[in-house]
């Protein structure tokens, strides 16, 4: 599945990073970097958790 970030909504809080650090990393300037764009099926639960935890609803999964 594909991991999508809406950068207009993202505030760089990093809740996603604490739940799925292999996908998300907030940089020193406060911007979010997507480390991988494709998630394996085995990572779905972890990614869904990150999507749900995002307070600004900036994350989504496709596929």
């Amino acid at each position: 599945m594909k991991v999508c970030v809406d950068y207009d909504k993202c505030t760089g809080l990093g809740l996603c990073e604490s739940l799925a650090p292999e996908f998300f990393e907030v940089q020193d300037d406060g911007s979010l970097e997507l480390l991988q764009t494709e998630g394996a099926e085995s990572q779905r639960a972890e990614l869904e958790e990150a999507v749900r935890a995002c307070p600004t609803e900036a994350l989504s999964l496709e596929g």
């Binding site: 505030t11 760089g12 809080l13 990093g14 990073e17 604490s18 650090p21 990393e25 907030v26 940089q27 020193d28 300037d29 406060g30 911007s31």
Partner: peptide, 16 residues
């Protein structure tokens, strides 16, 4: 809000 908050929030990320 977005501009100012980002200046500080960068210090509060999980990595920092």
């Amino acid at each position: 809000h977005t501009q100012l908050r980002k200046l500080v929030s960068a210090a509060f990320t999980p990595k920092q």
